Computed example of a mutant assay.
Amino acid sequence: MAQTQPTTVPKLEDPKIGFNTYAERLNGRAAMLGFIIALAIEVLTGQGALTWLGLISP
Rank of each mutant, 00 (worst) to 15 (best):
I41P: 03
A2F: 15
D14A: 12
A23E: 03
T4R: 05
L53M: 06
A40G: 11
M32I: 14
T45E: 03
A30K: 15
A40Y: 10
N27W: 05
E42G: 13
V9M: 10
P6H: 04
L26T: 05
L39I: 06
L53V: 11
A2M: 08
A49P: 05
A40I: 04
G34Q: 06
W52Y: 07
A38S: 11
L55A: 09
T7F: 08
Q3G: 08
L50V: 10
E42V: 10
A38P: 02
P10W: 02
G48L: 04
N20H: 08
A49D: 07
L50Q: 13
E24T: 13
T7A: 10
P6V: 00
T7D: 11
P6N: 03
G18K: 00
G54C: 01
T8S: 11
A49F: 12
L50T: 13
Y22N: 11
T45F: 00
I37H: 12
L33K: 08
I37L: 07
T51G: 01
Q47L: 15
A38W: 03
I36C: 14
T45V: 03
I17K: 09
G34D: 13
A31C: 12
G48Q: 00
V9P: 09
A23M: 03
A31W: 04
W52N: 04
L26I: 02
E24M: 10
F19M: 05
G46Q: 04
T4G: 02
I17R: 09
Q5W: 15
P58G: 07
I36A: 15
Y22R: 15
K16F: 06
G48P: 00
I41Y: 04
G54Q: 01
Q47M: 14
R29I: 03
K11S: 07
L39T: 12
E13S: 14
N20C: 00
A30E: 15
I56Q: 05
S57V: 06
Q5I: 15
Y22W: 13
E24S: 04
R25G: 00
R29M: 06
P6I: 01
M1D: 05
N20T: 02
A40L: 01
L39G: 10
G28V: 07
I56N: 06
P15M: 02
R25Y: 01
V43K: 10
M1F: 11
P15L: 00
T4S: 07
T8E: 10
M32C: 14
P58Q: 11
L26R: 04
L26D: 05
I36S: 14
Q3L: 12
Q3M: 13
F35T: 14
I41T: 09
I37G: 11
A40P: 03
A23V: 14
P10H: 03
P10G: 01
Q5S: 10
L50M: 15
A49H: 11
I36W: 05
G54H: 04
K11H: 04
I37W: 01
V9I: 02
G34S: 14
T51F: 06
A49K: 10
R29Y: 02
G54Y: 01
